[in-house]
């Protein structure tokens, strides 16, 4: 369901409807778990009027929360039916909103701390990346492979490749192999290698024409990009190993 012409506007000073609502709760000095819903709803709607009178468009999210507030207000106006035997008493209509506000408030509470840290950290300066990086390569943390190292590995292979290549004057039949096809092929290879991983070099069957080599490399990059495959280099300058990222091993790099 798409709402046409959702305004892309951000209401000044508020990060969103929850922020505005928390602001009203704070200003009124009321308990978040016992929000006087009628008053707060009126004030919320009044704020929306203010936005409107300032000729500001109101983002859809604000309207949505307004509707929620009005719904809660109307449910609270209805007399509570006495709970029938064996039936749970009806939940406070505000409960869900309160839970959302509390969670939002939780994260907001840390923003101030993070802001202080940001400020402290900005007072510190670090040396930039090492100069003349062609002379040396910094170690890769935790066995990750960098694009540069993949490039070096390709370069090594390319220097060994082309052994079987015909002179350029030869007529080369048009090859119909696509990257997609190659991806399927090497993914099978990598997955077959399982937990031990497949050495980068073993992706290629040498000697082979450069065309194949580049195609294989492109296919591998594409698999890396799609997160179907993961590259690791356990030792510096060592072999780059490729692992299949199947559904049961969604390795998430928290950092």
């Amino acid at each position: 369901m798409l709402i046409p012409e959702m305004p892309h506007f951000k209401t000044p000073a508020f990060e969103g409807p929850l922020d505005l609502l928390l602001h009203l709760i704070r200003v009124n000095e009321v308990d978040i778990s016992d929000i006087p819903i009628a008053e707060i709803t009126d004030q919320y709607l009044a704020m929306m009027d203010v936005f409107e009178s300032l000729d500001l468009q109101i983002a859809g999210e604000y309207v949505l929360l307004a509707a929620t507030l009005i719904e809660i207000k109307s449910r609270m106006l209805l007399p509570q039916a006495p709970p029938l035997a064996g039936e749970e008493p009806e939940e406070d209509p505000r409960a869900e909103l309160v839970a959302r506000l509390r969670e939002y408030q939780l994260y907001q509470g840390t923003v101030e701390t993070l802001r202080t840290w940001e400020e402290l950290r900005r007072g510190l300066y670090f040396r930039g990346a090492a100069q003349e990086t062609d002379d040396y390569i910094l170690p890769v943390p935790e066995g990750e492979a960098t694009p540069l190292q993949l490039f070096h590995a390709l370069h090594r292979l390319l220097s060994e490749a082309g052994v079987d290549e015909k002179p350029v004057t030869a007529i080369i039949p048009r090859r119909r192999i696509s990257v997609r096809l190659k991806m399927a092929e090497i993914l099978r290879k990598i997955n077959a290698a399982g937990a031990d991983g497949l050495a980068f070099e073993n992706l290629f069957i040498l000697p082979c024409p450069r065309f194949d080599l580049v195609l294989t490399f492109l296919a591998m990059l594409e698999l890396l990009r799609l997160l179907r495959v993961r590259a690791r280099q356990p030792r510096q300058y060592g072999t780059i190993l490729l692992y299949g990222l199947s559904a049961e091993d969604p390795k998430v790099n928290t950092g």
Binding site: R102, Q105, L106, Y107, G109, T110, E112, T113, L114, T116, W117, L120
Partner: peptide, 11 residues
Amino acid sequence: PILESDGPVPA
């Protein structure tokens, strides 16, 4: 910082 709804958090 440990998540808590009110009060400052240690640096």
